[in-house]
């Protein structure tokens, strides 16, 4: 580095001018190459890590089915009893957990999407100054709160609140949905704000020039043009909700029920994995079935990402 910056001070002799001009170029090329190798290496390490992860989880996840320890029929049933001594057991039915994960995710997205998009419109269109000064930092703080804190708040505030108002035990699908919707709200808001802000000002001006009111402009123009971006935000939020383990596990009760009643305790894939991972021994079917659940989680995440890619591509075309 030093040598390069010193170069212009070097006295150039006319005869070797061409050479001089070429030699620093060589050094620069070396630096250029170093940079290239460094970035290439980083990229490759990232790709290798990703693919080995994919390979590892997939191979671990399909192992129990290949070895015949667990049949697919057993896995996709609703009967969970991994240490059961009943005839036909042990039972590794994971449908309840898969549905549980999907249910908390969908319900929390249903709550957070309208709230988040509404807040984003307010921040960008209705009161940008207030939005920038108060809401923006508030959202940033929300993003930074660790999930265990959300779970703890859920355990001490939301669970007793549900218990006292409904007379149920409090640990329930509903508690999980409430905690998750708060958690994914900032993701949806910040994505939505970015999308709405990227709409050219001229579009808004055109709309006003045609005599449209502000609300007409927002609902018929802004929301429609930014729809792919808004949906991307919602799906990103859903991906986060789907993968969240700790906060959910603390409030949903972890009971292997089907998730069709708001007030009943349920389980999700993540909560079953975290609760059982440490206590089971590598290589046992009980442990392997947790890897299969991890594989399902991974596949769902890939599906969400695919959905986001599709959305953004459609956004670019439109």
């Amino acid at each position: 580095m030093e040598q390069v910056t010193n170069l212009p001070n070097k006295k150039l002799e006319e005869t070797s001018l061409a050479e001089e001009l070429r030699s620093p170029a060589k050094k620069l090329i070396r630096i250029e190459q170093r940079g290239r190798i460094y970035t290439l290496l980083s990229a490759w390490i990232l790709i290798i890590t990703l693919f080995s992860l994919l390979f590892f989880i997939t191979s671990k996840g399909i192992m129990p089915f290949i070895h015949g320890e667990i049949t697919l029929q057993n896995f996709f049933s609703t009967h969970w009893g991994p240490t059961s001594a009943e005839p036909g057991g042990p039972f590794f039915g994971s449908i309840n957990f898969i549905l549980g994960s999907l249910m908390v995710t969908l319900l929390s997205a249903l709550i957070s999407a309208p709230l988040g998009i509404g807040a984003a419109i307010f921040m960008t269109e209705i009161s940008p100054k207030f939005g920038r000064k108060i809401l923006q930092p508030a959202i940033e703080i929300l993003v930074g709160i660790p999930s265990v804190v959300y779970g703890f708040i859920g355990l001490t505030l939301i669970v007793p609140f549900i218990r006292n108002t409904t007379g149920s035990i409090g640990f329930s699908l509903l508690a999980g949905v409430i905690v998750l919707s708060v958690m994914i709200l900032p993701t949806i808001v910040s994505m939505s704000v970015d999308t709405i802000q990227s709409i050219p000002q001229s579009l808004r001006e055109g709309s006003y020039a045609l005599g449209a009111t502000r609300w007409q402009t927002i609902s018929r123009l802004l929301v429609r043009t930014s729809l792919p971006g808004l949906m991307t935000g919602v799906i990103l939020g859903m991906a986060r909700a789907f993968g969240e383990a700790l906060a959910v596990q603390m409030v949903i009760g972890n009971s292997p029920n089907l998730p069709f009643q708001l007030m009943k305790p349920i389980s999700t894939l993540t909560s079953v994995i975290t609760l059982n991972m440490g206590n089971t021994v590598q290589g046992t079917p009980y442990n392997s079935v947790l890897w299969s659940m991890a594989l399902i989680l991974l596949l769902m995440t890939l599906f969400f990402i695919l959905l986001i890619r599709l959305m953004t591509q459609r956004g670019k075309q439109g």
Partner: peptide
């Protein structure tokens, strides 16, 4: 005896 699981129970580690 196998513990009763399911309806109404909570599980925590």
């Amino acid at each position: 005896a196998k513990e009763f699981r399911g309806q109404g129970g909570i599980e925590e580690d």
